[in-house]
Design a protein around this nucleic acid. Structure first.
Length: 771
RNA sequence: GCCGGGGUGGUGAAAUGGUAGCCACGCGGGACUUAAAAUCCCGUUCCCUUUAAAGGAGUGCGGGUUCGAUUCCCGCCCCCGGCACCA
């Protein structure tokens, strides 16, 4: 019988739409398992095979957990605010709400075809006012707790998008979204003080079992440095110069000081023409550009001298933009004999380098004793610029009253809905288009009732994804972001599958928001961290080896494969391509191998069903070996080797021409089910099983089928393979030696010297050391 | 420069201290067929060899530990991803 995937998919797909087997059941007695895969940004291009790959991997795992008796929560939603939708809306003059609807409908249908077993009853959308009501609520709480404030600050500015960018959104001095050169500009911005949680964010990693590289990414991003702040007098001035150093022991080796161009001491020397010029030029550079100029450091002498607090030595103070005002105190003591950057700078400007200098540990005590410095901890983590001058984001729910100052919008008036506007682009002043909505902007102060104005900035795209995993626990709750008891049941996320690109920002921001909510008492006190385990999925690149994107023109959509080969072959192939966490270029070359495998399996089952009673012992051995291997491999997300084992099983059973019982045919089908849901369902029904195969228990292997008395050992002579022997698994060294040494070839090599030693590793090898 | 990941056949890859290359693609040969497709069977790391047997080399490079190293350690080279010159 030829396998017709179109007919089979058509037969089952509708039944899965309302299938109870895929739903997470609140408070179910079964043990829960929360499997989360990052929700996508629903772009107009649709879901590509990269998405399909990571989601299918998570789906296989979720299905496997269900078949192991867990009550699985496997939800999906849309992180739908963002610039591409806004840009498309601007270009086409269409409301982003409509654009978003079209995109999410399209994504959802694609996911349906991929047979992803999401619980659609829990679908969330960050652009839904019922959802962003709570995103806004969180912001008002941040404000109330003093963790959000407006700051006049120099930011990266994109002159094309007319928007402020966080440092991480500037790539090579260019705007990440539009590619324009960015500049520095001072603007009033909402800033969220994530740095207050730096220590907690480091410490909390102890409560997780993230894979090592994810933990490392978090630790390195926070980058805690312990050192000292040391105060220098400035010669002929009442001003003092404070520096942060991780090496207070090198204090006596300091031969010059460097301050950032933004440092307050610079203001006093701006009358000098060369200094003024230097400061103005560095102001134009973004931090990225300053970083890029690493090979050619620039600076200018301030004319000022600092006094070393220990030995009274006069040290010249230089101004250089390789020192950043945002880190430490914006000033350093330079020890060119112990720091390569300082050395390069000293050589360029012909400054003193004390090559004889030896660091002195006791210096630290002396500094503290003299009261000229103190222990200091710095984190490289920076506060989070939270304002965007854009339309398509959550309005920041704040009101500016000329009398009362900034007042958060009261809970009862949330959500602050995005008003309809005529134009979606930012205003010519760089304000968000909401600023033009006079009747929306003008409001009353919630506190004094006087005339006041709404904030017109919107939130960054990270805001909605900071807490979405909580909303899945209770997606329709109108009174709170989620019910405490439901969160207590489902949280923490057991396995969070995501991309490396989110291992720093998204992961850190969402952990921060969770910890903040924890302190607020709105999430369960038993659960200090949101994610128990974080795994990285790999990336599927285009056939050209580049990331899939419209601009590269290398996007492969899953339907193009599913139309020809079917969903099962596509899914199984993606899982077979390589390890789940590795980067691979899309290549359809061996897709046909998976197709052949599915057809062979189909033939095996339809040929043998109902004919073979108990089957042959040999077939049970083969099938139980599969069950054991598959159980271990899926648990470790080693999907590619499970497929290899399935292929091997079908090949062995076909070649051995053994009789296979219906039970064992069913066992193979169950192992296949997480990967190829449609054909597994069909074959399960051929075998007379009840709908659905996906709610069956994953088979358990039986030890007695796996036991083999015979084993093949390698025979090595001086570590080189010289033969193999078949022996009983429990054979002792003498027995193995007798068999091995009866072989002509082994005798030949043994006769070349005297046996000095024999190493026998039971079940594996016997090695003769001959000299 | 810093951080993370990686380097194994013609290709995707497997093996995490014990027979390197499972499984799959591709390729070669054969069966079936009027023919082709599909399917099935055999072979396929490289070198030497008509073939086979036998041998040698072999997991980026150079060392080391070990009876034995793709796997562990030290040094180096190259590729990919991330980055904020972080004092």
């Amino acid at each position: 019988m030829v396998y017709d995937f179109k007919e089979v998919e058509k037969k089952w797909i509708d039944r899965y739409d309302s299938f109870a087997g895929y739903k997470g059941v609140d408070f179910d007695k079964k043990e829960k398992k929360y499997v989360l895969v990052e929700f996508p940004y629903p772009s107009g291009n649709g879901l590509h095979v990269g998405h399909a790959f990571s989601m299918t991997g998570a789906d296989v795992y979720a299905r496997f957990m269900r078949m192991n008796g867990f009550n699985v929560l496997f939800p999906m939603g849309w992180d739908a605010f963002g610039l591409p939708t806004e840009n498309y809306a601007i270009k086409m003059g269409i409301n982003p709400v409509i654009v978003t609807k079209q995109s999410t409908d399209n994504f959802k249908e694609q996911m349906r075809r991929l047979a992803l077993s999401f619980d659609w009853d829990r679908e969330v959308n960050t652009t839904d006012p019922e959802y962003y009501k709570w995103t806004q609520w969180i912001f008002t709480k941040l404000f109330e707790k003093g963790l959000a404030e407006k700051q006049e600050m120099a930011i990266n500015w994109c002159p094309s998008c007319l928007i402020g960018l966080a440092n991480e959104e500037v790539v090579d001095g260019k705007c990440e979204r539009c590619g324009s050169e960015t500049e520095r500009r001072t603007i009033s911005q909402w800033v969220v003080k994530i740095t207050d949680y730096a220590e907690r964010l480091l410490d909390g990693l102890k409560n997780t079992s993230f894979i090592d590289k994810v933990k490392a990414a978090q630790v390195n991003w926070i980058d805690k440095r312990v050192g000292a702040n040391i105060v220098f007098e400035v010669k002929g001035s009442s001003e003092k110069l404070e520096v942060f150093t991780t090496r207070p022991d090198t204090l006596l080796g300091a031969t010059f000081m460097v301050i950032a161009p933004e440092h307050k001491l610079v203001a006093g020397v701006m009358d000098k023409e060369d200094i003024k010029k230097y400061v103005e030029e560095s102001r134009k550079k973004s931090e990225m550009e300053r970083a890029e100029l690493s090979k050619e450091k620039t600076g200018v002498f301030s004319g000022l001298y600092a006094i070393n607090p220990i030995n009274g030595k006069e040290i010249p103070i230089w101004i250089a933009d390789y020192v950043l005002i945002s880190y430490g105190t914006g000033a350093i003591m330079a020890v060119p004999s112990h720091d390569e950057r300082d050395e390069a700078f000293a050589e360029k400007y012909d400054l003193e380098i004390d090559r004889e200098f030896v660091p002195d540990e006791k210096m630290i005590d002396e500094i503290i004793e003299k009261g000229v410095g103190e222990k200091s901890v710095n984190y490289h983590l920076r506060d989070w610029i939270f304002s965007r001058q854009h339309y398509w984001g959550e309005p920041i729910p704040m009101i500016k009253c000329p009398v009362c100052g900034w007042i958060p919008v009261p809970d009862s008036e949330l959500p602050v809905k995005l008003p309809e506007v005529e134009k979606y682009q930012p205003t010519s002043t760089g304000e968000s288009p909401l600023a033009n909505m006079t009747e929306w902007v003008e409001t009353e102060c919630p506190k004094c009732g006087g005339k006041a104005r709404r904030e017109t900035d919107t939130m960054p795209n990270w805001a909605g994804s900071d807490w979405y995993f909580l909303r899945y626990c209770d997606p329709k709750n109108d009174d709170k972001l989620a019910d405490m008891e439901k969160m207590k049941y489902w949280m923490a996320v057991d396995v969070y599958v995501g991309g490396d690109e989110h291992n720093t920002l998204h992961l850190l921001y969402s952990r921060f928001i969770y910890q903040f909510l924890y302190d607020l008492g709105v999430v369960p006190k038993e659960i200090p961290e949101p994610y128990y385990m974080r795994l990285s999925h790999g990336v599927i690149l285009g056939t050209d080896g580049n990331r899939m994107s419209k601009s590269h023109g290398n996007v492969i959509v899953p339907e193009s494969v599913a139309d020809i080969y079917g969903t099962d072959v596509l899914r199984t192939y993606m899982m077979f391509m390589g390890p789940f966490d590795s980067t691979m270029a899309w290549n359809e070359r061996s897709l046909v191998g998976v197709k052949r495998f599915i057809e062979k399996l189909n033939k095996l089952v339809t040929d043998q069903v109902g004919k073979n009673g108990d089957g042959d012992l040999e077939s049970s051995r083969i099938v139980h070996k599969l069950i054991k291997g598959a159980t271990e491999d899926i648990s470790r997300l080693k999907f590619n080797t499970v497929i290899a084992k399935l292929m091997e099983t079908v090949n062995e059973l076909t070649r051995a021409k053994v009789l296979v019982s219906d039970e064992n045919l069913g066992n193979i089908v169950k192992v296949l089910a997480p990967f190829a849901p449609f054909v597994a369902e069909e074959l399960w029904s051929v075998l007379g099983g009840e709908f659905s195969v996906h709610t069956q228990m994953f088979p358990k292997y039986e030890e007695n089928y796996l036991y083999t008395s015979g084993v093949t050992l390698s025979v090595q002579i001086n570590g080189k393979l010289r033969g193999t022997v078949e022996v009983n698994i429990d054979a002792n060294e003498e027995e193995v030696r007798a068999v091995a040494e009866s072989q002509e070839k082994v005798q030949k090599y043994l006769s070349e010297g005297t046996i000095r030693k024999v190493i026998y590793i039971k079940g594996k090898t016997i090695n003769y050391v001959v000299a």
